[in-house]
Each structure stands twice: as C-alpha cells, then as structure tokens.
Simulated assay, not measured.
Amino acid sequence: MPSPRRAAVLGSPIAHSLSPVLHRAAYAALGLDAWSYDRFEIDEAGLPGFVAGLDESWAGLSLTMPLKRAIIPLLDEISDTAASVEAVNTVVFTEDGRRVGDNTDIPGLIAALRERGVDKVESAAVLGAGATASSALAALARICTGPVTAYVRSEARAEEMRGWGERLGVDVRTADWANADRAFAAPLVIATTPAGTTDALAGEVPGAPGTLFDVLYHPWPTPLAAAWSKRGGAVLGGLDLLVHQAVLQVEQMTGVLEAPLSAMRDAGERALATE
C-alpha cells in the first residue's frame, strides 16, 4: 500500500479557500488514494514553526495571502518566475529534503487565456495595483507585444506599477482610476481589484469589447463581468485562474504529467454553486 502523502493550503483567512476542493478532485480522478489535502489558518508569525514541524510525508504546500512573500526566507530555492514578482504560491518538498518554491499564478493566468484563444495581444489594461496586478504584469510580459496601461488610485501605486514594469520588461503606463472606463478600449483587460471596486464601471462597457479577465470568483459573475458578457465580450473569471494554477501545483507536487483539468473545474463549479 502506498505511503500516505500530504499537502495543504496555508493562509489567513483560509476558511473559504477552494484549493482543497480542486486538489482533492484531482487526487480522486488520478486514483491517488493515499494523498490528502487540507487547509490551515496560518499567519506570518506562525509560518516558520509550521514549516519546521513538517515530516517526510509532506509533498507540498499552496500559499495564499499573506504568506506568498513570507515563505521565501524559509526555502532552499525559488524559481525565476517566483523571483520575478517576489511571490511564492507553491512549495514542493523534494526527495532529498529540499524546499523549492514556485509561482503558478503567472503561468496559470497565461494558460487560462490560451484556453480561450488569447495567445498574443498588442496592448492591455490592468485595473488595480496590488499583488495580483504584479502577477498580471508578469503574465503580460509573455503575451503582450505593446504597452500596458495600469489604472490606479494614487501616484504611489502608479510608481509601484511602473517599477514592476521596468523589472519585468513591460512598457507600463499609468492612468488615474477616475478614467478607468478608458481601459475598455484595450483588447485585454485584467481586473485585479477587490469585490465591489469595479461595479460602478459596469455601465461603461462599450459594444463589442475585447476580453475581460476578472480575477474574482465569488460572487460570480461580477456586475462588470455580466455587463461585459452581455455586450458580447469574452469573459474569464477567478475560477479559471484558480483551476489552472492548481493544475500546475498538482503536477509539481505529485509528479503526474497531466492533472485532470475538467474534473477540477467541475468540482470548483459545484462548490461555488452551493455557497
């Protein structure tokens, strides 16, 4: 009988994380009966002690806020992708006991767009300037051939986004949030703001818009996403990102070549439907 293997998602707050639903669905579809995936409410102060207490049964960890940066000093190595945005959302424990960090949000975002036929764009717009916005810029560095305009609320945020652009090799231009409706002329708009922030913009969506990637997933659809879809534009949501980044996590932690994307998405949709 295979030895039990463990994985989990850590963060605070963590009670509503969909990660256990997605990973457990993958294990079931793959026949990995000895694998388990849990969630733990862990803040930055508790993280070092938790990691130090893990035994050889642990295969990996998923990290959400506020731990994506706090985990880095506790690791032996991080990928170039994670280093580019100073954020780790995935830790894999190797057979020789090393802790290796990666960021699957960035390739997950790219994979979600590619699934919808968006491989390259000539320009893009980002709504917001938080941690998710920097991951969006890192993804756009790979698929956007022209400028990216970030719509933000302060000069400090604008400077931060321009700094990320320089670091990631993206031509980032900034604009005031008061003009955020101008973002909708871009072929790709990535909304990275908290729930409710873009609701007032729903009435400004033009006819025949491009693609909207709204990283929220509950409640869904957001007013902006609903208006966008009504106008005939392509819409991706937070579940698309969650599923694609989780697919990559499952593959890294278990060693399988291809995680069951459809089974994981179906499980996520069922979970959201019952909330």
Rank of each mutant, 00 (worst) to 15 (best):
A202R: 02
A227S: 12
V215F: 10
G238L: 08
A246M: 10
P219V: 13
A180C: 13
N179M: 09
V250N: 11
V215C: 13
L201Y: 11
T222G: 00
A180T: 12
A267P: 07
G238A: 09
R265K: 13
A202N: 04
A186E: 08
Q245W: 14
R173C: 02
N179T: 14
F184T: 15
N179Y: 03
L168I: 00
D240Q: 05
L248P: 05
L257N: 04
L224M: 04
P194C: 12
T254M: 00
D171R: 15
K230D: 14
G233S: 07
I190Q: 14
V170T: 01
V235P: 07
T211F: 04
Q249I: 05
A202M: 08
A180E: 14
L241H: 04
Q245H: 10
L188V: 06
G255V: 06
Q249L: 10
G196T: 04
E251D: 01
R265Y: 06
H244W: 15
W177T: 02
E251W: 00
P206K: 13
A234C: 10
E258Q: 07
A267T: 12
M253L: 04
T197I: 02
Q249V: 05
V235D: 12
G169A: 08
L239M: 10
D199Q: 10
V170R: 01
L212V: 14
L201T: 15
A259G: 03
